[in-house]
């Protein structure tokens, strides 16, 4: 789907940046690159432009510009309801964080089952049942 089609509060992972010339280059240099995570923050009162969060900062894009970006909708693990199966798409963190998650069986491409969504969150992976902190679950994106 297109970035412009995501609704406020939803997340996407960038698949491809379309467009050409200036808009293509500008989107890239803002860090909108294949694999980057984008969150829709809010929509302007008149419906355009839209504010996005990317790499920890906030930009606003007009719909026609956001329509150059192809995304897949994803969800941070922390927002997944109980008793559902999800696939890990992206882990947002440094090498250490990725290794720690990997030790629990949470790695890109793996299937998880959320047993209990909250407090604390419990997930079942191929390595067993683990408790995941909110801060961690926030940085693991699934579909």
């Amino acid at each position: 789907m297109l970035l412009s089609e995501l609704r406020p509060g939803e997340y996407g992972i960038v698949k491809k940046i379309g467009g050409s010339g200036a808009i293509h280059r500008r989107l890239l240099s803002m860090g909108l690159l294949p694999g980057a995570i984008v969150r829709v923050v809010r929509i302007s009162p008149f419906g355009d432009p839209i504010e996005y969060e990317i790499r920890g900062f906030f930009i606003s894009l007009r719909k026609q510009e956001a329509a150059n970006v192809e995304v897949d909708k994803i969800v941070p693990l922390s927002l997944v309801p109980g008793n559902s199966d999800v696939r890990v798409i992206f882990i947002d963190g440094g090498v250490g964080f990725v290794q720690n998650m990997g030790a629990m069986g949470i790695a890109v491409g793996k299937i998880l089952k959320v047993i209990k969504p909250c407090c604390p969150m419990q997930v079942q992976t191929e390595r067993g049942i683990f408790t995941v902190g909110r801060g961690m679950a926030y940085r693991v994106f699934v579909r």
């Binding site: 200036a22 500008r26 989107l27 606003s60 894009l61 510009e65």
Partner: peptide, 10 residues
């Protein structure tokens, strides 16, 4: 526009 409208919200 000679440039696309990409606005940072600091």
């Amino acid at each position: 526009r000679s440039e696309p409208f990409v606005l940072e919200l600091p």
